[in-house]
Amino acid sequence: MEILMSIVIGIVFAVSVYLLLSKNLIRVILGTLTISHGVHLLLITMSELQRGAPPLLDLGEESFTDPLPQALVLTAIVISFGVTSMLLVMGYRTYKAHETEDLDKLRGSADE
C-alpha cells in the first residue's frame, strides 16, 4: 500500500509541477492546489498506513495510528487553503490591473 501510494504521490507531484510551469495563471493556481494534496498524502503515507484504530480513545481499542502526522497534516490543509485563496485573489487583481493572465506578458520592466 505504501509503495502504491508513493507512486500515486509521484504522479500528483508530476502533474502539479507541470501545471505550475504553465504560463496561464489559472493553471498555476490549480497546480498549487493539487501539489498540496500530494504533500498531505506524503506525510500520511510516511507514518505507516492502516496500522491500528483511528486515534480516538473512546473507541476502546488497544493500538492507534500515529496521531502526530495527522495533526501536522490538519494544520497543513488549513494553511494551504490560506495560500490558495490568497493566490486566487492576487490572480484576480493582476488580471484586473493588466488585462492578461499570461505570465509571459507579466514580466515587469526590463531595467528592474
Binding site: I3, S6, F13, V17, G38
Partner: peptide, 18 residues
C-alpha cells in the same frame, strides 16, 4: 521532462524514506 523528473524523485525518496 522536468515534471516527470520531480515526480520520479518524490516517489523514490518516499519509498526509500519509508
Amino acid at each position: 521532462i522536468v515534471s516527470i523528473g520531480v515526480g520520479l524523485m518524490i516517489t523514490l525518496v518516499s519509498i526509500s524514506a519509508f
